[in-house]
């Protein structure tokens, strides 16, 4: 299993990536307004595309790999997540859930996720024969360009230094804009706490050197967790030797949950 705490080895291409266009526009806007100091200091190394090696070595970016061909749809991940993260039992609050895809011979696509897959999947009554069928575990993609973080009006949801997208439950005003902005339906509104909730990559477990609960209980190792920048860990191996897809790439959210053997119909 990947140890989430050791991130000492960044690939060199990561360190000299040119500055992100949106960031650049922001910086340019700030500069043109003549108030670069008031808003935040323009980070010169970033603009030059340089980053000190020593800094880069200390960085750690969490990510998850999911192999569709290994998922048996047992729903243990969804159950474990509810146990671990104090998620209400009702069947419409999930940090992670499992979908079943049935692609019929006539081209019709049937998707379901009864109780997030926790209680298993009843046999699918085949109409017209099945072409392909498989399970897809879903969770927050902890996007690098997270739309939910972008829209939060008060800064109650944010991306940590290690790439996890979290919600500050003591600061969230409960407007629900982030729920609308998430393209993956990964956020839900806590009926008790009245704040937005979501997958944290089990941040409290990572802090104690453990992997997320869903990864811990996945019996077939369909889920892998680790540092996406690290070169020698199972996740890196996974990313290297599989053909990788992310969900809804056209939205440019840059997810950090990577799928292997994902069908094109999944969205």
């Amino acid at each position: 299993m990947a140890s989430p705490a050791d991130g000492r080895d960044w690939e060199s291409r990561e360190t000299c990536e040119p500055v992100d266009r949106r960031d650049f526009l922001w910086e340019a806007l700030k500069a043109s307004l003549g108030v670069p100091i008031a808003l935040s200091v323009v980070r010169v190394p970033e603009l030059c595309g340089m980053q000190e090696e020593s800094d880069a070595g200390a960085e750690r970016i969490y990510g998850m790999g999911i192999d569709i061909r290994k998922c048996i749809g047992c729903g243990r991940c969804a159950q474990a997540c509810k146990n671990e993260n104090d998620v209400p039992d009702e069947p419409y609050f999930f940090n992670t859930w499992v979908e079943r895809y049935v692609i019929r011979s006539d081209g019709e696509i049937v998707v379901d996720s009864p109780n997030g897959g926790i209680d298993g999947f009843p046999p699918y009554k085949e109409e017209g024969g099945t072409l392909r069928t498989f399970f897809v575990p879903k969770l927050c993609n902890h996007c690098e360009e997270a739309p939910c973080v972008q829209v939060c009006p008060v800064g109650a949801t944010f991306i940590t230094d290690d790439g996890a997208v979290l919600v500050d439950e003591e600061y969230c005003i409960g407007c629900g804009y982030c729920v609308q902005a998430c393209p993956y339906g990964a956020r839900w509104f806590d009926p008790v706490k009245h704040v937005a909730r979501k997958c944290t990559f089990c941040y409290h477990r990572l802090a104690k050197g453990k992997v997320p609960a869903c990864v811990e209980v996945c019996p077939t190792s369909a889920r892998l967790f680790g540092n996406v920048g690290h070169r020698a860990n199972p996740l890196a191996h996974f990313l290297r030797f599989n053909e990788i897809q992310v969900l809804k790439p056209h939205l440019n959210t840059k997810p950090k949950v990577f799928y292997a053997n994902l069908d094109g119909e999944v969205r």
Binding site: W26, L39, Q150, V151, C152, P153, V154, G155, A156, Y171, C172, I173, G174, C175, G176, Y177, F189, K193, H194, V195, A196
Partner: peptide, 21 residues
């Protein structure tokens, strides 16, 4: 409609400049 109307003042205190709202 807010989950926490009593926290609404935060939108004046710490507005997220990247947020449309």
């Amino acid at each position: 409609h807010l989950g926490h109307p009593e926290r609404s003042y935060e939108i004046f205190l710490t507005p997220n400049r990247k947020s449309a709202m």
